[in-house]
Amino acid sequence: MAVTIDDVRHIAALARLGLPEQRAAAIVNELNTILAHMDELAKVDTAGVQEAIGVGAEGLPVRKDLGPPFPLARSLDAFAPSMRDGFFLVPRLSTHESTEES
């Protein structure tokens, strides 16, 4: 399963990473070298073996999707790159460039 330059462009897009062409070509070689070592796993018989789910003595604990209040000592705008009226500001989506304001 050799990684191709198209694979690298695809996964870079999925990962939101802009890669210059030269770097993308180098990544192809790096990933292929690394993944060649991973092919060892294909030789292992894992028929009937369950995938690991949690590594603690009690497995992965399940809890209600609730928690104690998050103890923020500073407001969000103390560290956000750009905020207005309690919202994070981001650049306009390219599909919405005709609208005037973000």
């Binding site: 560290f79 956000a80 790159p81 650049p91 306009r92 989506l93």
Partner: peptide, 13 residues
């Protein structure tokens, strides 16, 4: 978006 370093580019992506 929420914290740390930001570098502007063309649009959100």
């Amino acid at each position: 978006v929420r914290y740390g370093f930001r570098l502007e580019g063309e649009g959100l992506r």
